[in-house]
Design a protein around this nucleic acid. Structure first.
Length: 224
DNA sequence: TGATGATCATAA
DNA sequence: TTATGATCATCA
């Protein structure tokens, strides 16, 4: 078996590809793709995500778009423990800090990314060697009315604070399902943001993330 | 011990 | 520099 040379033609094709790799270990998938397996993920944090992108035929590179634009699907690998509990929060996208006139939840990047997500749970216990971690069955998810409402509410609160120039007051403690945390190579990276008087300030870049509890519910609802 | 805040690698 | 892929590691 080898990684597919082209993107999936439709959802069925995508789900079929998921079935093909379900139950296999990262070591097996890496070997078949001629990719080296790192000892740990300390210096290879996005490694498994990129390996699985390769196996599902997602276009590489960093674009502020979905992984499968033609299918309207975003791919997210999520490390889980034996009880299907996510071990990490899930990065969603960059948080625009300069405000965007007329931006709404429905048109936001967060909503766009989360409109339809293909969750790919992977064993993530740090005691398990990376190569031995297995890929679970994929879950194709779209937020229901209740979930969308929770996300919208969190997004609106955080976005309002950004627009009002209160970026520095935002804490990761805010938000029931969606929150904001720093997102950068290190603390010296700065980007433009809005200040309290509408002036331009420099601050650490931020990203939107999904809380573990929210992702956990998604996995449970799909019955993992 | 878990969540928050910080950080690592890579592409364009 | 922005943005993707995320996980690490410190401290309450």
């Amino acid at each position: 078996m080898q990684p597919p040379p082209s993107p999936p033609s439709d959802i069925t094709d995508l789900l079929f590809r998921c079935e093909q790799i379900a139950g296999l270990s990262l070591g097996e998938l890496a070997q078949m793709a001629s990719v080296a397996v790192p000892q740990n993920l300390q210096r290879h944090k996005g490694w498994q995500g990129q390996l699985l992108e390769l196996w599902l035929g997602a276009s590489a590179g960093s674009k502020p778009q979905q992984d499968f634009p033609e299918l309207g699907v975003e791919l997210k690998t999520v490390p889980i423990d034996a009880g299907w509990q996510p071990l990490e929060t899930t990065y969603v996208c960059y948080a625009p800090l300069m405000g965007a006139p007329g931006m709404t939840w429905a048109r936001s990047n967060v909503r766009n990314k989360l409109g339809q997500v293909l969750w790919l749970p992977v064993e993530g216990d740090r005691r398990l060697p990376v190569a031995e971690r297995r890929v679970a069955n994929a879950i194709l998810w779209s937020p229901d009315a209740r979930e969308d409402e929770i996300l919208r509410s969190d997004w609106e609160e955080l976005t309002e604070q950004i627009v009002l120039g209160q970026v520095e007051q935002i804490t990761a403690r805010q938000g029931q399902a969606l929150h904001i945390r720093p997102k950068a190579a290190n603390g010296s990276v700065l980007t433009d943001a809005l200040g309290p008087e509408g002036e331009r300030i420099r601050t650490r870049p931020r990203g939107f993330y999904l809380r573990k509890s929210f992702t956990h519910q998604i996995l449970l609802n799909a019955f993992g």
